[in-house]
Design a protein around this nucleic acid. Sequence first.
DNA 1: ATACCTTTTCATCGATAGTGAACGACATCC
DNA 2: GGATGTCGTTCACTATCGATGAAAAGGTAT
Lengths: 252, 252
Amino acid sequence: MGGTTKTIGAVERAFEIIEAIERLESAGASAIADELSLSKSTAYTHLHTLQEIGYLRKEDGHYRLSGDFLRLGTAVQQGFPVYRRGRSHVEELADRTGERANLVVEERGKGTCVHAANAGGAADGAMTRGERRHMHATATGKALLAHLPEDRVDEIVETHGLPSFTDHTITSREALESELAEIRETGIAIDAEESILGLRCFAAPILVEETVIGSVSVSGPSRQFTDPDREPELTEAVRETANVIELDFVFG
Amino acid sequence: MGGTTKTIGAVERAFEIIEAIERLESAGASAIADELSLSKSTAYTHLHTLQEIGYLRKEDGHYRLSGDFLRLGTAVQQGFPVYRRGRSHVEELADRTGERANLVVEERGKGTCVHAANAGGAADGAMTRGERRHMHATATGKALLAHLPEDRVDEIVETHGLPSFTDHTITSREALESELAEIRETGIAIDAEESILGLRCFAAPILVEETVIGSVSVSGPSRQFTDPDREPELTEAVRETANVIELDFVFG
DNA sequence: ATACCTTTTCATCGATAGTGAACGACATCC
DNA sequence: GGATGTCGTTCACTATCGATGAAAAGGTAT
């Protein structure tokens, strides 16, 4: 485990400041110094540096993150082949079902949302672009886990644990494993308010050459999603979308 | 002009590395050291640091930007009120016209695209999310310039100049000024292949309390956009969209 | 086996990032 | 209006730490 190599403190501090600004929306030198227990001068020099290179913009004395992060974020997004090929299909899924549709990939043991398509539907609690969530508590995460090598799953569970978010969250390795087996059979992962109360979600894995490269989902309020008529419609739509994206990889 | 304050070299270097990775898509320590003329060990320590704090991920020996930048980018986007209120209207504009629609704000003297809505149409050359362009050479930029205080326009021209991108780019302050006056009259800014050959674009400013907070546009290949029947349709659609967003600010 | 990549580690040294104190500007309070 | 508090900004100082080259460790092809 190589984790002992030295790291550069100034860079770590810079990103702590960036994340503090993300949290506070905007902040001045004193607020940052306060928030992170830094000296005012240190906070100031960092803010000044980040502004000089363009990553912060100053608006009446308060610093905010600049559009350059938006540019980098877009580059990251485009860097996922599954986004480039899947985006339009996820949009169609949202249009077709009238619900929020997400495209998720695994990153560092968590599920990262690389695209979120709204079809006007209220998306309370649904993942937003760039957001990362525990995999065992989300439909998209479980769809990914179900097709990851077993030792990778072990690793992930060991690193992040199985924290509980609601009464329905899966918290034991055995329960998780049996659910993953079921997902492998049905091709559909379900989040029944396991991550957020009131939020239900259906997801399907995207498999290319026996490897999961992502998962797609639709999600919405539990009330609408428990309508027995809708479940087959929604799961089928999700499954089909995943399939279309898979085919896009093979041909296209 | 306060530009003499000290800046933190390590942080500047870190972002140079981040931008190099953005350019190269993915890279190892040697490639970065090469690209930026750094020692291999320096490049390595920086990469290692950025990976430790999660902003880079390592994939078979190559570093890539991580989803954390996507999260920051989304936060930046949400930080623009004009995005929060305008997004859906820009989507509708794209659907309605069948063309690429953009939402742009001014940042540090350039136009930054905060949202890009595709309606399937080929978007060659159109701005992408987070991209920044010179204002004098784009419809969205000119729509903004037309309603910025005159001294601000002076400042911007002084800072960024009026570089030429095609034969049609405006390169003199006088020509720019007369065009801005026309935009103020008609309410529509036109980019007639001034930024990129073959790309035509119509934009309208979004004014709230006499202040420009952004601009919207549709753009597409010159061939389609010179159809005399479409111009009134497109300009009208753009104008209306800007108007709806303005109203959303006043009420809503 | 060889040569040639790469990434990673290490000790050394000089630059520099962090610090606290101080200043000017701007509010707020009594 | 004088006092007090807070803010951003600057400065000189010094211990820290980031940069460095050399060399080790790992990988791949020849």
